[in-house]
């Protein structure tokens, strides 16, 4: 008797959870659906109101976007360069920092580890004033160096990689390589890095996305139109006189900045969703 009652209860709870999950999924996706529809419609069609079916102006909107006053395609290339190089430097050097703490016993080891964890939460915004002044003094305004090189010191990435390293890298392996006569730098590149590949891949994706989306600092540093990254151009689009714009092109521009990330995410989602929890909480 009790068994049937609890089965009914489970069934009921299951139905409720599916309904809530479907509603939330709808809330997450509907905006991108509308964006997709509107990016395929012409300005005239858009001003007549919303329809749930796509039109056939996607290619025209795309061509118009490429020839608009804003260098959108160039912006995408700029974003790719900045985000790609940041991800590369960030993961390589964060692995190196993690290895330094993991494999060697030196006097300031514990201090260094505690220090890096302590500064992990300091947001970039609170040092932005000094950062901008420094960049101005170094004559690096309109330069990608201040957007790329700070990625070398990334405490959160370091912490994630350190956790992973603790679980995969045994020091006897390093010891064996030393006996074979390998140099320390060579051991790092040829043994440690390949071993860390799964964690490095996850962090490379996160760093790439974070820099791809970054708006605050780039908007203060990139003043030259041809140097601007996508978020800065999007903000500019918002600041422009809206009524003069072809709305089809506006939607296409937004779609162009959002959909590449969505596509890459769907291809790699298995790694990403699995990787979030690992870095979030120290266990």
């Amino acid at each position: 008797m009790k068994k049937t009652k609890s089965t009914v209860g489970v069934q009921g709870r299951r139905i409720v959870s599916y309904i809530v999950l479907i509603l939330l999924s709808f809330l997450c996706l509907v905006w991108f659906y509308i964006l997709f529809i509107n990016a395929t419609r012409s300005h005239a069609e858009l001003s007549r109101g919303f329809t749930p079916l796509p039109s056939h102006y996607a290619v025209k909107n795309f061509v118009k976007m490429l020839h608009s006053t804003q260098p959108i395609a160039r912006g995408m290339l700029n974003s790719l360069i900045v985000a790609g190089l940041s991800a590369l430097l960030c993961t390589y050097f964060s692995t190196m920092t993690a290895y330094a703490i993991h494999a060697y016993r030196f006097r300031f080891r514990k201090f260094a580890y505690t220090f890096i964890l302590a500064v992990m939460m300091i947001p970039t915004q609170v040092t932005a004033l000094g950062f901008i002044r420094l960049v101005t003094r170094m004559k690096l305004i309109n330069n990608y160096i201040p957007l790329i090189f700070p990625a070398i010191a990334a405490p959160a990435t370091f912490f994630y990689l350190k956790q992973y390293m603790d679980s995969v890298l045994s020091l006897s392996l390093v010891e064996a390589a030393r006996i074979d006569g390998a140099g320390e730098f060579h051991i790092f590149n040829a043994i440690v890095l390949p071993l860390m590949r799964p964690a490095v891949a996850v962090q490379a994706i996160f760093t790439f996305v974070a820099n791809w989306n970054n708006y605050f600092i780039p908007s203060l540093i990139l003043k030259n139109e041809k140097m601007k990254t996508l978020p800065v151009l999007i903000a500019e689009l918002r600041g422009a006189d809206f009524l003069k714009f072809d709305m089809g092109v506006v939607y296409m521009t937004i779609a162009f900045s959002i959909f590449p990330v969505i596509i890459v995410y769907l291809l790699l989602s298995k790694n990403i969703v699995g990787g979030i929890a690992l870095g979030g909480v120290k266990e």
Partner: peptide, 16 residues
């Protein structure tokens, strides 16, 4: 699906 919006460019999402 529920993690997806986290990766979207906040400025483009706001513009949208």
């Amino acid at each position: 699906v529920i993690y997806l919006p986290n990766l979207i460019m906040a400025s483009a999402f706001a513009m949208l």
